[in-house]
């Protein structure tokens, strides 16, 4: 897919995110905006998957898990725009009787979601389990797991890091949404995880650095590079240096946009920066 088209989709997804969070008057806009470009790249250009016939087992296709489930507004928008479920359903985000739960869930049967996430640190382990399942069933497809960088505080992430390297889970690509922000502030102030790339290397992972995490050519070439290292005995991780709140100037790099909706005035300012490139939901 052409870069211009991917950019148009990403712009619309950002607009979707702001509209969803504003309409629900709750949600997590900052991380969602920051991860939008990577999610669009994965779903519209990189992964092998079948939106029209979603299979809960994920066999015979690539699988994606959003371990940092709170940024699901962007994931839902990408899934809807990719055809996993009707676009109009985005208006039910975080409302009663909705499949679009505040954090991703399987109970309501939303196509695209294979495990509930939200309580942090768990999605990576589940992704590893799916990768092992694929290996046992000789399924050549890959598992992608996005994790947040605040999420790296969780001990379970490092249990999973040890396990994946030890068991040579090499059909797995982890993407860290490295925006250096978490709820209470800068990650370096709250609980420092630097030097991050060295940590993962020391744990036995093949590390790829994505410095331009909002450039489609850079995202796609890094993902492709990672994929070319699959099935070589090591788990793979892309450290994506994203900008929290990307696309809305007053949200960019401001940790206070982790989990609050915009006011009326802020909404007007935000949406003015995000013109519709596709049809609104």
């Amino acid at each position: 897919m052409e870069q211009a088209h991917l950019e148009a989709i990403a712009a619309q997804v950002r607009r979707d995110v702001i509209r969803m969070v504003y309409q629900a008057q709750s949600g997590h806009p900052g991380g969602a905006l920051g991860a939008t470009d990577i999610l669009v790249a994965l779903y519209f250009a990189h992964m092998h998957h079948t939106p029209s016939s979603f299979s809960p087992t994920g066999l015979g296709e690539d699988v994606f898990i959003l371990s940092n489930g709170h940024i699901c507004a962007a994931w839902y928008a990408v899934l809807a725009r990719r055809g996993y479920f009707p676009l109009q359903e985005l208006s039910s985000f975080r409302r009663i009787n909705s499949r679009l739960q505040g954090h991703p869930a399987t109970k309501e049967g939303l196509p695209g979601v294979r495990v509930a996430t939200g309580s942090l640190g768990q999605g990576l382990s589940v992704g590893i389990g799916i990768a092992l399942g694929k290996r046992l069933q000789r399924d050549p497809h890959l598992v992608y797991v996005m994790i947040g960088d605040g999420e790296l505080n969780e001990g379970q992430i490092w249990e999973a890091a040890l396990f994946a390297a030890h068991h040579r889970v090499d059909n797995l690509i982890v993407i860290v949404d490295r925006n250096y922000k978490q709820i209470d502030g800068d990650t370096r102030a709250v609980l420092d995880t630097d030097p991050l790339e060295e940590k993962w290397r020391a744990f036995g992972w093949e590390v790829f650095s994505l410095r331009e995490a909002h450039s489609f050519p850079a995202i796609l070439s890094t993902l492709e590079q990672a994929r070319s290292h699959a099935r070589k005995g090591k788990p793979l991780i892309v450290i994506a240096y994203t900008i929290m709140g990307k696309g809305v100037d007053f949200m960019e790099n401001d940790y206070r946009w982790h989990g609050k909706p915009p006011s009326d005035l802020e909404y007007e300012r935000a949406i003015a920066q995000l013109p519709a490139t596709l049809k609104d939901f």
């Binding site: 066999l59 992704g127 389990g129 799916i130 046992l136 249990e159």
Partner: peptide, 28 residues
């Protein structure tokens, strides 16, 4: 041996890995 996974003293990860294996149709 192919269907046994030693997880080490890391129970949280073990539960998650089991959930993933179950996703793909295994009974862990």
């Amino acid at each position: 041996p192919e269907r046994f996974f030693q997880c080490g003293v890391a129970e949280a990860n073990m539960i998650g890995v089991a959930a993933g294996l179950a996703t793909t149709g295994f009974i862990p």
